[in-house]
Design a protein around this nucleic acid. Sequence first.
DNA 1: CAATTTATTGCGATTGTATTGCAATAGTAT
DNA 2: ATACTATTGCAATACAATCGCAATAAATTG
Lengths: 124, 124
Amino acid sequence: MKRRNTPTKEAVMDVLAKSGKAMSQDAIEQHIDITINRATIYRVLNRFCEDGILHKVVAEDGKQYFALCKKCDGHKKPVHHFHFRCTTCDTIECLPIEVHFSLSEAYIVEHVNCVLTGTCKTCA
Amino acid sequence: MKRRNTPTKEAVMDVLAKSGKAMSQDAIEQHIDITINRATIYRVLNRFCEDGILHKVVAEDGKQYFALCKKCDGHKKPVHHFHFRCTTCDTIECLPIEVHFSLSEAYIVEHVNCVLTGTCKTCA
DNA sequence: CAATTTATTGCGATTGTATTGCAATAGTAT
DNA sequence: ATACTATTGCAATACAATCGCAATAAATTG
């Protein structure tokens, strides 16, 4: 299925790029200047995830947060990293800390979801 | 607030102890022989968490899973560990893998939530 | 053992996140 | 400009989890 360029997609990408953090649907909606339907935002976000442009994190609050996939440290592919959710400023940042674990080959790992919760350095 | 012993609490503990895994409210309800209201199960689970008897994990599916806190390897307190959610048998097991990360002291970490998702060794 | 206190429970209603069906709209290529 | 179909808006829906309140029952007291 071919993707099309739409104002919605641009607006969502814009907000995420500017914030540099992982954001929830409602946070994104609040930071967008135009009006976009909730369902549409979810659909755009999920499509970006399918295309490997965004990655999704589920926090302890059960909500989904979306962030740009950056390829850091010269890696070709984005690496699983920790996330930090600050309950004070209510944002999630991607930490530059890789997730390491050694698990039996008998397991097939498809997703990694690691979130630390607390107070970030700015709010502490 | 003093706690009382009730059939409900025993039944819930029983199921969790027997399974040895992290279970969701509906899974627990299904494995209990008596009928217990949904809200009650959640209240019992949350009370156990407050008392440090259970720990809660939020998986990628946005659901809460509860498991017994074991003090392994002679540690006095339970240690943050990885969890594995198998999408085939739909269970979450506590992996004997500790979560390690070095984060600036400027952050205050209150909770750690790490879940790997995929197919477990039994289902693979 | 009966009376009292209050933690616990059941029920229904409610909150909040996320998804879906369907018709209308609008990119994109010809 | 036209056709094709991805995308969107709207309303309805699904689902997890919580809350208020009255009823129940565990534990303590006399």
